[in-house]
Design a protein around this nucleic acid. Structure first.
Lengths: 133, 133
DNA sequence: ATGCCTGCAAAATATTTGCATGTAA
DNA sequence: TTACATGCAAATATTTTGCAGGCAT
């Protein structure tokens, strides 16, 4: 069995991200094999619980960079709060409005078909289905 | 042919909204028979062009109130910026990322089926499909 | 007259940026 | 060593709120 720290480092390097201390720490919190939907505050709390000192700005920088690199998917369901999803496979979301919480819907549990014609010269970047409950 | 100003007043009264000057003005800008997706800034610009003096706070208050009353639908596609949709019928959206602009997709042009089971005791508030292009 | 509405400014919230210092390669 | 990362604070952006005065009923 491989060393987890080394795996995280390798994951970052593979995505052209310099494996600095903070980035490895945050990646370690996020990529533990379980799908997660985290806000910036969630990450700060998670980090604090593991005695990792960091700042809001660094968490934003790190999450945005992970998202650009394709390690995270940014999910927008509410104005004002950004969520980052560690599940990169095609899927959709339940949004629990009262709890401000996301939950995955496997792509096979929902069927979107008959996509309309796109405006000239456009390509689809994503198809997002959010079921608010 | 009925008087438009009276129609707007009646529309507000019908939704238990006191037809004040600003509210009638904003309603008049929005409910002209054409579907619109407006941000708060859009409304302020529209108002200014018609020589209607108002403030950011009042526009927010008015749009939020219209949305609560069911005269507008709030659409969230981006963190930070709220859009209000005057088209209340069931439909979905194209989001032009580079232009930060929404366009309607008629509900019959897209097919969402096989909805997954809901968590216990929940009811669907809405099903939102956003195609980012 | 009374209570809700409006504008202004200030507050609250979320996110980004500038800069000096620290750290990875 | 050199370029990039980090932390802190300040800046930006969006939305909400408090309050004094105004308007609708």
């Amino acid at each position: 069995m491989k060393n987890e720290t080394h795996d995280i480092t390798h994951l970052l390097v593979k995505h052209d991200i310099r494996p600095t201390k903070i980035r490895r720490a945050i990646a370690g919190l996020l990529f533990d094999g379980h799908d997660k939907h985290v806000s910036v505050d969630d990450v700060i709390d998670l980090a604090r619980r593991q005695k990792i000192r960091t700042s809001v700005a660094s968490v934003y920088n790190t999450l945005n960079q992970f998202a650009s690199a394709g390690l995270l998917r940014r999910v927008t369901v509410e104005q004002g709060r950004a969520f980052f999803d560690t599940n990169l496979s095609a899927h959709h979301h339940f949004y629990f409005e009262d709890e401000e919480r996301l939950e995955d819907i496997p792509t096979e549990d929902i069927n979107v078909s008959g996509l309309p014609e796109l405006p000239q010269g456009r390509t689809i970047k994503s198809v997002d289905v959010t079921i608010r409950i």
